Amino acid sequence: MTTKTHLIAAFALVIPLTLAPVAASADPGRLTVELNKFEEIDSGGCRAFFLFRNQTDTSFEGFEMSLAILDGNGVIDRLLSIDAAPLPVARTTLKLFEIPDTTCANISEILLHEVSSCKPQNEDEIDCFPILDLNSRAAAALVK
């Protein structure tokens, strides 16, 4: 090998190593929405317990979701808009929402229809879908 070939080979090995930390630091973190459990309520509805785990480096002053509630047959029963803000940075937040006029046992799935607001503190609205993770510990699935 010539000296020129050695330099090119050495340079090719250095580039991936120097770029790797930059790519890792560009990860914005994750925002996890978990349907944790259901609870029947006296008025004939269902109370849903959601955990929001903000593992990003940003607090959110606005976070609203539109959810489609599917019944036991998989048919959309209703749309429900929920406001989960504020979501502080590096915290888990518990939010309870009531789903009126339906029993918990009659909810087969909850579909995240859209995120109507995702506003970081003192910044413009952003698209949160790329940083969202959904999961469920309840009998119904929570899906995108």
Rank of each mutant, 00 (worst) to 15 (best):
T56M: 01
R78W: 13
L96F: 12
N73V: 08
F11N: 07
E98A: 09
P86S: 05
N73W: 09
G72F: 06
F52Y: 13
D57W: 09
S108K: 08
T103H: 07
F63Y: 10
D71F: 06
A23L: 15
A84L: 15
D133M: 08
I131F: 06
F60D: 00
V75N: 11
G62V: 01
N122M: 09
V89Y: 02
D77I: 04
E40T: 12
G74F: 08
E109F: 10
P86T: 05
L13M: 15
V14C: 11
C46F: 08
D77C: 06
I41H: 07
L19K: 08
G44Y: 08
V33F: 09
P21I: 03
F60V: 03
C46M: 06
R30P: 01
T102M: 12
S66H: 10
K37L: 07
E39Q: 12
R53K: 15
L132W: 00
R78Y: 09
K37Y: 10
L111G: 12
K95F: 11
P120I: 03
D133L: 11
P130T: 01
N54I: 01
P130F: 01
L87G: 04
R53M: 12
S117P: 00
V115I: 15
L67N: 02
S25D: 10
C46A: 09
T103C: 02
A20I: 06
V22N: 05
R47E: 14
